[in-house]
Amino acid sequence: MAVATLSVIGSALYGTPAVGAATAGDPVAAIQRQLVKGYGVRITEYDTFNSGRISGWERFKPTKGVVGFGDGKVAATDLWDFQLGVAGVRDICIGKRIWDYDPADKLPNGKKWVTFKYPCVLRLQTGHLRLDEPKVLAAVLETTKTTKASDTYDGTPTTLHEGSISFRQLWNVRPELRDGSVKNEHADWEIDWRLWIGKDGLVRRAWSKWREPEGDKLKGLSDGQGWFGYVKDVRYSDWGMRLTIKPPPAAQTIAFDKLKH
């Protein structure tokens, strides 16, 4: 999606790359050096889902936008999800609040955005594999099986790193995942992953594929397959771009609880 498309409503300010490129080497350190207030990265994410033996694999429309950094972490996101609505839905997420723009919504005169409290997912990740969390990315890279020269992304030649990490290994660095659908009896199921990394140590593409058991709450919904499948494929570009993600103008915003339902 062109920059003009993202900025048409005017809440995110984009510019040219400003954070200095990291020296060649450790991707963990390279990404951590990017997490500076006033800067960010552009992303495009493609999701594929396997809901069972009858439907099989289905690829969804992409999510595109920008991720803003600050104080060593992800501070805000501004994303268009083209799988939702008629023409896509734009969400700005800052802290614990979201602003939602759906071109198809019929809102009161002058209002374009609906806002409500929401647990924003403020992280750089492909599936369960977080790139912005040093322990997680380091653990993933430790399971590398092969590396080879690969394609050019964002104008940068990359090296493809491939491997697999089990849920058990991932729990050691992301213990909160133990509360998910994968239990001890499936802890050795693996997440296959691929990272395309530039000479500057920055990830230009991150891909992961895995299965999760359907569990008791969703038992039977996978058409007897017994699991659901996931593929996450995220492209990263314009690392170090100047970026400030702000809420939309208050005059164009209405609280969700003030809408007539």
Rank of each mutant, 00 (worst) to 15 (best):
S51L: 14
A29I: 00
A21W: 01
K96T: 14
Q125Y: 15
G85M: 11
L141D: 08
G52K: 08
P17T: 02
G52F: 08
R123V: 13
D100E: 13
A104H: 11
Q83P: 04
W57A: 04
A138P: 03
G38P: 10
I98V: 07
I92T: 01
G25V: 01
V74H: 05
L122P: 05
D71F: 01
W80G: 05
K145M: 14
V36A: 01
D102R: 00
G25P: 00
G88A: 09
G127F: 06
R59K: 15
T63L: 07
D71S: 04
Q32M: 07
I98Y: 00
L35F: 03
V136D: 14
G110H: 08
Y39I: 06
V89N: 02
G56P: 09
S11E: 06
T77I: 03
F116I: 03
P62D: 12
S55M: 12
Y46M: 08
D105W: 10
E133A: 13
T144D: 10
I43Y: 00
K112S: 09
P27S: 07
A139E: 06
L84I: 11
P103I: 07
T126V: 03
K96Q: 15
Q125G: 12
E142D: 15
F49S: 03
G88T: 09
K37D: 14
D132Y: 06
T63N: 07
F69P: 00
Y118S: 14
I98W: 02
V74P: 00
L141P: 02
G40H: 02
I54N: 13
G38N: 06
V140E: 13
Y118E: 11
L137G: 08
I31F: 04
G25T: 04
Y118K: 06
A29D: 00
D132R: 06
P134H: 10
L35S: 05
T144L: 04
F82M: 09
Y46G: 05
A139V: 07
P108W: 06
K106Y: 13
K111D: 03
K111G: 11
V28G: 01
Y14N: 14
A75N: 03
P27L: 04
F49L: 15
W80N: 06
A76C: 02
K112G: 09
T44W: 10
V86M: 12
T63R: 09
P103T: 13
L141S: 01
I92M: 02
D100K: 15
I9M: 12
R53Y: 13
T44H: 14
R90H: 08
